[in-house]
Amino acid sequence: MSVELGIIEGFYGPLWSWRERKQLVQALVPHGYRFYLYAPKADTFLRRRWDEPYPQETTVQMADFSNFCRKHGVRFGVGLSPFEVFNDFNDAAKEALAAKLAFLDGIPVQELAILFDDMRSDTPDLAARQAEIVHWVAERSSAEQLTVCPSYYSDDPVLDRVFGERPSHYLEDLGKALDPSVRVFWTGEEVCSREISPGHLQRVSEALGRKPVLWDNYPVNDGDRMSRHLHLRAFTGRPAANKEHLAGHAINPALQPTLTGIPAITLAQSYEQGPEYQYGQAFIRAAQEVLGKELAGQVAEDLLVLQDAGLSRVSRERRLAMIESYSRFDHPAAREILRWLAGDYQVTDEMVQTQ
């Protein structure tokens, strides 16, 4: 048995192009990635302005991407974040939500995720309210699979500090209230978990009354601090034994779509190889597959700077030398590194607070 792998494009920061999304799908299909959820925080028509209709151009592009995914055996879905709707699910909100669901049916989407993450609430019966909304959506959506992201999607106390203290027994109450067919996202013991263990997932499964879908916040690098680093190394801290406790494993990609393929491929290798997995060797193989041998060698040589030191600790001389090195390569990954060196991928606190 293997776990179903997928991409959930759920980061803050600059949007990818539809071409970049297609290229990532093509790169990962051979490694068992079978679903793609479109949910970038910068797509305002999914989040802050969720109740407004999409522009025609985006509608056409989304429908084309849905068709592209289907042709490649990938389930296409959308993550809809009706911003803070659980605080007042009134008639106007219901009318707008019904219109958006009808729009998504027309794309079409095979999976629909209702995302309640990163929003404030002062609703004591939050779990019951959110379950009510999810069931209301289920009655009006033609999506084959419905998934929800809880407001408190991790044990991490940072969520309580930023969005208010979680209601007592929130996770257990949500699990009891939700229909068993609804899947639930979970990021682990931390928002960006360094390790996710079978024991932890077993506890969460018992609380929810179902196996969670792991929303893995690696290799994502959004936010002011993380966007100064490229997350390229192979996956660690995700033992293959986790598959017994998961309904799926979705990675939140890095801001750099081509480079994302490197760690994404190693996750598939981790599940395939089990205890024989070696993360260093996995990185080398995946980097060579994505980049070609010469560019992979250059990235491996610069890995300490790219992932560990980051932009803030790169001297002017080293930066200029790296620009010269990567300018030699006609490859989308090299262009992503050059954009990163130029500061094009910097995510500000303001972007996180307003997207």
Rank of each mutant, 00 (worst) to 15 (best):
301 E>Q: 13
250 A>C: 09
200 H>Y: 15
314 V>F: 11
72 H>A: 07
194 R>F: 04
137 V>A: 07
235 F>D: 00
119 M>I: 13
89 F>Y: 00
27 A>E: 12
304 L>M: 15
249 H>K: 13
95 E>D: 13
244 E>P: 07
60 V>S: 10
10 G>E: 03
163 F>A: 05
38 Y>D: 03
330 D>A: 09
191 V>I: 14
186 W>R: 00
270 S>L: 14
154 S>C: 01
48 R>D: 13
262 I>G: 12
343 G>E: 09
338 L>P: 13
310 G>H: 00
283 F>V: 08
333 A>F: 04
296 A>N: 04
222 D>W: 03
293 K>E: 15
260 T>P: 03
278 Q>T: 11
211 K>T: 05
215 W>T: 00
279 Y>D: 08
260 T>Y: 02
244 E>Q: 15
294 E>R: 13
294 E>A: 11
105 D>Y: 05
227 S>D: 10
117 D>W: 09
174 L>C: 03
165 E>G: 06
45 F>Q: 13
303 L>T: 07
330 D>L: 10
264 A>Q: 05
126 L>H: 02
224 D>K: 15
74 V>D: 04
132 E>M: 07
272 E>Y: 10
251 I>D: 08
283 F>M: 09
291 L>P: 00
121 S>V: 01
326 Y>C: 06
76 F>Y: 13
143 A>I: 02
347 V>R: 01
119 M>A: 10
84 E>W: 07
86 F>M: 15
39 A>M: 09
293 K>C: 14
194 R>Y: 12
42 A>M: 07
196 I>M: 00
162 V>T: 10
144 E>S: 14
302 D>H: 10
51 D>I: 11
197 S>H: 11
